[in-house]
């Protein structure tokens, strides 16, 4: 069984936000109005955390793209009363939308705040409706949404590999954010397969994960910046 994971090289990330946009389009993430947004109800399945260090004029900005970390020990799945969220055999933390009752326990349990509740019926500007991604469902109001590691791409890639009569190869299955990155700062693959780039990079001395002390074991690694 593969164990899907991601490595993000912060040395290469410029904080351009291309991954954020690609994700929003790929996953049919609704745009919420300014009022909802002011209440903190913006949904971003991929977000960039920016921090400022130092004092003017010596300010240094740091960026950290943050998808769902698909933890090996996810706190969110343990609190779900209906098993709408669980970790599957390939390590992806799933969110089964029609199963979700919208209790939001998982959202609260997530230490990385990557789960989002959709408070309103999803809406798009008229011209966008035609262009919604047919491979991804439009979630109904009142469920928790999250990054799925673009599992719909995995479903298709597996089928294509089967048609071609071969195993899944590195690069067959890559989420939209990784694909979109103009500086190639993001890597994706099987963390357990020594041939895959991610499994090599995760052993780098620059590799770290967020809040490692929690024991959640995220499957998204960062490579720290070199000063």
């Amino acid at each position: 069984m593969p164990k899907w994971g991601m490595v993000i090289d912060l040395n290469k990330c410029t904080g351009c936000g291309e991954c954020v946009t690609a994700c929003k389009v790929e996953l049919n993430v609704p745009v919420v109005g300014p009022e909802e947004s002011a209440k903190g109800r913006t949904i971003l399945c991929m977000d960039i955390l920016s921090t400022y260090e130092g004092e003017f004029p010596e300010v240094k900005m740091r960026h950290m793209p943050r998808p769902c970390f698909h933890c090996e020990h996810p706190p969110c799945t343990k609190v779900c009363p209906v098993r709408a969220t669980y970790k599957n055999d390939e390590g992806i933390v799933a969110q089964i939308y029609p199963q979700c009752i919208g209790c939001r326990y998982c959202q609260v349990a997530c230490p990385y705040t990557v789960k989002h509740f959709n408070w309103t019926k999803p809406e798009w500007p008229e011209e966008r409706c035609e262009a919604l991604n047919p491979d991804v469902s439009v979630r109904p109001e009142g469920v928790v949404e999250k990054c799925t590691f673009c599992v719909h791409r995995l479903q298709k890639a597996k089928e294509q590999a089967a048609v071609d009569g071969r195993d899944l190869r590195e690069g067959d299955y890559v989420p939209a954010c990784v694909e979109s990155c103009p500086t190639k700062a993001m890597y994706f693959g099987d963390l357990d397969n020594p041939k895959h780039k991610v499994s090599q990079l995760k052993k780098s001395h620059r590799a770290f994960r967020l809040m490692e002390d929690l024991g959640t074991e995220p499957k998204v690694y960062y490579l720290s910046e070199v000063e």
Binding site: Y86, N88, D89, I92, I96, Y97, H152
Partner: peptide, 8 residues
């Protein structure tokens, strides 16, 4: 019959 074989 993993949910994520079909659900998306």
């Amino acid at each position: 019959n993993d949910c994520y074989a079909c659900h998306r």
